[in-house]
Design a protein around this nucleic acid. Structure first.
Lengths: 88, 88, 88, 88
DNA sequence: CACTGGAAAATGCCGC
DNA sequence: GCGGCATTTTCCAGTG
């Protein structure tokens, strides 16, 4: 070992260890999540839609509505562009 | 019949619940991780570099195995192509 | 240089080069795309929704409707689960 | 007035068009890339390893800069923490 | 408060 | 046709 103070080195090692430990736990949970999806798939559910269900439930309904509305506005705007001016 | 049957519906609800539970746990762990970084920062460590340390350590094992000199990889890539190469 | 036949080696080099060239071009185009999004943002458009517009237009309407329907079915099924049996 | 005005609508349409155009080009290039791999495969190269070659070459420059020995990184990570370390 | 960079999710592709 | 792998895309937190 060359230039680290012992205390600082120990501190660094501890920090790194704690973080890697947590990341490992996260990895395991993510693994479990994947398994649940696979299991659901095996039971006939559509995984893609299932993910969307989770996503939708995550954002509150209000926000959700706003986004959908804006999406509609955009889609409409494109349809109407350079065709009809369409009474605003 | 429209929609899912009662049983399937319950099954679906269970799946969703389990996934959301896991995601909550992951969120908590991620939160903990952030705190560790902040704490380390408070102790004078450079968070950015700290992240780099973690990242490098993560890649380290992989690379050692897969990069045992670029030449080896090339040699492998060529294996079996000597005959064909002439045909080119 | 040690063990590659000249011809095979040249062939390999050519392949690698061509691929890297293409990947470079892709990178540049992706870069351009990002810029367009930024420009749009500067003009007051909501980038997130804009991305969704692109996504929606990519999938044909029929498929799109099916997915939305299924999503509704799932969401309904969860709402109803372990509450009312609801005439199937 | 509901929705976007005509001008904004046209602007939006233009943006969408440009993006879709670029994505199309990217698709074509990606297609070409795939073909090169297939062609190489036909010439006796192992595609999987070929991909690895590309990947390794991509990471190579990065690593050389960022991993000029883990020790350097650690040393940097510690910079300025010697005082604090005592306090721990 | 925009920007960059990094984590997480989603999609697509390949081999079995 | 499915599962795993790799790539791409999306999202979010930190930083200036």
């Amino acid at each position: 070992m060359s230039g680290l103070g012992k205390v600082a080195g120990d501190q660094l090692a501890a920090v790194v260890e704690r973080i890697e430990r947590i990341e490992e736990e996260i990895r395991e949970l993510a693994e479990g999540k994947k398994e649940i999806y696979q299991e659901a798939k095996g039971n006939g559910f559509d995984v893609k839609i299932l993910r969307e269900v989770i996503r939708v439930r995550k954002q509150d309904p209000k926000e959700r509505d706003e986004q959908e509305s804006l999406l509609d506005v955009y889609l409409q705007a494109i349809k109407g562009s350079s065709k009809v001016a369409k009474a605003a």
